[in-house]
């Protein structure tokens, strides 16, 4: 199976572009990936990473905030998908911020200062890339719940941080991709954090197990809620897509429910 060929996920996100003429469709948009413990949504991040670093254009830059895995992990996964992260890092197209062991200093001000400094780093990369005429910048946060942990659980500051990252999307046309876990908020009556993120998100991708239970050849379902698809001449439409997926060693297979033989 050709990995370059657009699949259902690309279609749902509007990434299908045969002539490579249109600008990056996720530009100025916030993508929220929600997953659960039974179905990890990491593969969606990998897919977006691969698309963002596509060999067709050298103007793409990815800023990756890794709270959950080390660089070598992403390097191995992406290599299977046909994308060399080490080389991209050397080409200054992939900026990896290893925040695995990071913990902001305790106390209210410490949390805030840590997040401000982190934001400062991102802003610097974005502005310098922008000045170098690399206009297609993607900021990826993997994952948001661990960021909350690193900030000693201060939800408000983490949301402030997210807001500032969002200002970059409107000012520089960046896209912001955030992974978060839905089920860790399931027992809270008013999960303000995840709700706030859902309000902010322009595209919501949910990875869930099948409603009917486990199956060997279907690993789960993806629901993509695209709040506004912009088309030529300012027209736009809204869309909800749902399809099943199967995670394989070197790629993911997407198919409509019932269409797999």
């Amino acid at each position: 199976m050709d990995q370059r060929a657009p699949n259902l996920l690309d279609e749902a996100l509007g990434l299908v572009d045969e002539e490579k003429t249109k600008p990056w469709p996720l530009s100025s948009r916030v993508v929220l990936v929600e997953d659960r413990v039974e179905t990890s949504g990491a593969f969606v991040l990998h897919h977006l990473l691969k698309r963002a670093l596509s060999p067709h254009s050298s103007n793409d830059v990815v800023v990756f905030l890794a709270f959950s895995q080390p660089f070598s992990h992403y390097d191995r996964v992406l290599r299977k998908l046909g994308c060399n992260l080490t080389a991209q890092r050397e080409n200054n197209r992939f900026f990896f911020l290893d925040l695995l062991m990071s913990e902001f200093p305790d106390g209210d001000e410490g949390n805030k200062d840590g997040l401000v400094a982190l934001y400062g780093k991102i802003e610097k990369v974005v502005t310098t890339s922008f000045q170098e005429n690399k206009k297609c910048i993607t900021i990826v946060i993997d994952d948001f719940s661990l960021m909350e942990v690193a900030a000693n659980g201060s939800t408000n500051y983490v949301l402030d941080f997210l807001h500032y990252c969002r200002t970059l999307t409107s000012a520089f046309g960046c896209s912001l991709v955030v992974l978060n876990h839905e089920d860790i908020y399931s027992s809270i009556e008013r999960p303000a954090l995840i709700l706030q993120m859902e309000y902010l998100a322009d595209i919501l991708i949910k990875a869930e197990p099948l409603a009917t239970g486990l199956a060997t050849d279907v690993h789960g379902q993806l629901t993509v809620l695209n709040k506004e698809i912009r088309e030529e001449q300012g027209s736009s439409r809204n869309k909800i897509c749902n399809f099943h997926f199967r995670v394989k060693e070197n790629g993911v297979e997407y198919f409509y429910p019932g269409s797999k033989t």
């Binding site: 401000v116 934001y119 400062g120 802003e123 402030d160 807001h163 500032y164 200002t167 409107s170 000012a171």
Partner: peptide, 8 residues
């Protein structure tokens, strides 16, 4: 929106 808390 742009700088609500003066971080920038």
């Amino acid at each position: 929106y742009t700088d609500p808390l003066g971080w920038k």
